[in-house]
Amino acid sequence: MFSMPESLRAFLHETGEIARFSLRFFREGFQPRFEWEEFVRQCFLVGYRSLPLVGLTAFIIGLVLTMQLRPTMVYYGVEVQIPAMVGIAIVREIGPILTALIFAGKIGSSIGAELGSMKVTEQIDAMEVSGTNPFKYLVVTRTLATMLMLPILVLLADAISLAGSYLGVNMYETLTYPLFFKKVFDNLTYIDIIPAFVKTFFFGFAVGIIGCYKGYYCEKGTEGVGLSANSSVVASSVAIFILDLIAVQISDLFQP
């Protein structure tokens, strides 16, 4: 008789548990009372505080990508197309996926560790006996904050990345700012921009819900807190790649 390997069984079990946790998010998340104050605080924490890291990384990637592309483009005599090529690469793929992965590393781990620590020090139980639904207070607010903030961060990262690319182009030639962006946007269509933007809501959801799940069900004391943080990053990064793969397949259906 076929016997499923233990690791596969554990993976499927955890996937099912995360799906159930997500269903609970949709079931309880939109019922009163909504924790506005905590939601706004989380938006500040996950959005504003991620901006320096995301911005710096985006700028460097834009600059480096342009510098790396240049020799090949010059070889084929199409260096004039560098802004267009970089623009498409950044807006369609590099901006969303890179920002989401940095976000998973910074925010996913911090959510996993914070909730894990709250779990092992009984703070979640204390919340419950204080008349608070800890799921709504902790999970719903954080997941909605990551869903809302990641798309905004991606938009900012795209803009900063293109600024880096503009600098990269101008290290070798002189191209005005309006002309650079005209070349970028002349080659971008709504089919490039909208799916790339929409998928970031799903990336944000994955980072938030997986981080919360790992922390909310943290076990094994302080060792478990470290494991929660670590596994939040790994699981949400894998989820981001899988969601990206699905998003590309769907968006390709709408390509002319």
């Binding site: 092992v120 020090t121 009984e122 703070q123 139980d125 204390a126 008349g131």
Partner: peptide, 29 residues
């Protein structure tokens, strides 16, 4: 639960809140 208080073994103070906010939390909630 308003009439029954619970002192947790690990104290369960909220790390992200001041002492005042910790004490106000059950009042507000």
């Amino acid at each position: 639960r308003v009439k029954v208080a619970f002192l947790f073994q690990s104290n369960a103070l909220y790390d992200s809140m001041t002492v005042r906010e910790n004490l106000e939390f059950p009042l507000r909630r």
